[in-house]
Amino acid sequence: MIDPFQTLGVEARFDLDPDDLARRHRDLSRALHPDRYAGAPAAERRLSLSRAIEVNDAFRVLKDPIRRAEALLRRAGVPVGETAEPKPSPDLLMEMMERREELGDARRRKDLDAVRALAEAIRGREREVLASMGRQFAASDPDATKLAVVLPELGELRYLRRFLDEASAIEEELSS
């Protein structure tokens, strides 16, 4: 597995400066642009193209906090994915079930304001979880046993993301 941090030449940390990330992506993409290799030998053209794809993939991973966290955990040897992660807490499941049902009710009532208010509350939660994950990542050494403490929050982040995806689909549906 290619290390996306190395590909973009940024430090392997959770709190990345999004502007710096975008700048590095742009600079590398320019340097690897096919136009620059128009007269180069075929092997070099192929190499620059595969590097450009790698750079785009790495950018997509690092831009997304969930995938960035997964990449950091994998780097440290912490297994992520379906069977490896702790089960979500009953409180979180109960809350997400209730919020999703409220969202469904708001959709049936065609209550766009209610959908927006629910999404806004969850976005607030998402900001809190991201900040807390940033602190956890910063506080732990790249040590598998210590980094595993972020797994419950990573799980929570995925639940919040699912909610927000659903909410924006409904917002779009109700505003059209």
Partner: peptide
Amino acid sequence: GLVGAPACGDVMR
């Protein structure tokens, strides 16, 4: 029964 899959954000009752 209320269960969930953290890797995909699914919740099932």
